[in-house]
Design a protein around this nucleic acid. Structure first.
Lengths: 238, 238
DNA sequence: CGTTTGTTTGAATAGAATCAATGCTGGTGG
DNA sequence: CCACCAGCATTGATTCTATTCAAACAAACG
């Protein structure tokens, strides 16, 4: 049940990326690229559109690519020996998955689309080359490493600490923030919430349900909810 | 009580580092340095010897240096708004503290010596320069970043998950491993253990005490203990 | 030698895990 | 088109674990 070996990428819509005109160019790794430096990209950069549940790569796999998230959310999952999963990071548009490929490491996580996503597949050679020859990209790359670390720290300090209600609150606030659509966001499955907060699925469910009863959360159609940011902040306890 | 603003570095023994003959040269950032590349180090690299409790830098401070740990342990601490602390990483010899300084970020943590330590202070300019001009250093740097991330992931999956007994077991195994002296290691203060495992000081104390009673742990003089690695592994649950 | 700091222990309580059952929903095939 | 099924989500009851608050202890220190 754990191992759904779905090489989902094949099913995806695939096109050649046009970085120059990328809609989120300001966010991405190549934002610092000068016009003449685009010539340094020799290998093709694929632009992939993937459905929820699609797997970018598996843990332990040695892959030759990084992935820039353009839309949607991607979870990085690690599996304990007993098979239960822990989500160690959540990537949003502008984030990069698979940085470890740059240091010739096998992927450390399984990268799974939480929602429908669009990602760009960047071959390591391309990134290495730009890292060497474009100071802007080099800086952006270090910034990505740093950002990943900060994210990891937040998972430790915010999402893995304190009582369940506080953790769920902090997660919701984070999702609302990430969505950037006022006070609404798309909820994750209860199992994912549990895996992210180190609580059981049942506790996740109970807490969400309780929040709804208490009016902290109200349905906004198809997995979307409206949050009472004010009160959630209090619960989050900062 | 929380804010002991001790600029401890001043009290330290300070000497000029001689990287060529560094005892742990094989571990450190500059391990890939060719003989002629040493000339690229213009600014002085200080070699510091610090007592337990010394603070390398404070959270939020903008610092101009990275620190390579040569001996001892360093904890990276983040403080919650309510003042209680969480240890998000533990650095061992060969690890680097303060990577964020490379991307012009203020330090994200407070770096505190857990035991007596020796560290080298590397000015950012030096590292930037070597990063640009020595491919070896560039690679080592990315490896450090990667290693920090892997560490962070372990804190999430091993040390922040499961019942207290399992967490303490995993921490002990980790300490024994890090010490590299057979089956013994130096215990941390109960408060630090708590801050690392996201449990209270009391629970940390109780668990350690219970382990001793059960013979999983036996005193080996002055904060040192001998561990029954075998049985701890079972408890750790992998 | 008293004081401070950190550790251990106890009792009561609150919180989450566990085990088990029921409800809901969207998709599938008859 | 509708009935059924599979996969999630919810809820309940119980047990277990960790937290909390408080006190006793021990070791380190001036």
């Amino acid at each position: 049940m754990c191992a759904m070996e779905k090489p989902a990428i094949q099913a995806a819509f695939r096109g050649a990326a046009e970085c120059r005109s990328c809609a989120i160019r300001h966010l991405v790794l190549f934002s610092g690229l000068q016009e003449q430096e685009f010539a340094l990209i020799h290998r093709p950069i694929d632009d992939l559109t993937l459905p929820p549940g699609a797997i970018l790569y598996h843990q332990g796999q040695t892959g030759g690519a990084l992935f820039t998230v353009r839309t949607g959310l991607v979870k990085l999952v690690q599996y304990a020996p007993d098979g239960c999963q822990r989500i160690v990071r959540l990537l949003r548009p502008g984030d990069v998955a698979g940085l470890e490929a740059l240091v010739s490491q096998p992927y450390q996580h399984e990268a799974v689309a939480v929602q429908a996503i669009q990602v760009c597949r960047l071959p390591v050679e391309v990134v290495h080359r730009l890292d060497r020859e474009s100071p802007g990209v080099h800086r952006e790359l270090m910034t990505r490493w740093q950002r990943a670390l900060t994210e990891a720290d937040h998972f430790l300090t915010e999402l893995s600490t304190g009582p369940a209600r506080a953790r769920v609150s902090r997660l919701l606030l984070r999702l609302v923030e990430a969505a950037g659509e006022g006070e609404t966001c798309t909820l994750l499955g209860r199992e994912d919430i549990g895996a992210m907060l180190a609580i059981t699925t049942e506790t996740a469910s109970r807490t969400i349900a309780a929040f709804k009863r208490e009016g902290l959360l109200s349905d906004a159609g198809h997995d979307r909810v409206r949050c009472d940011v004010q009160r959630l902040r209090e619960l989050a306890g900062d």
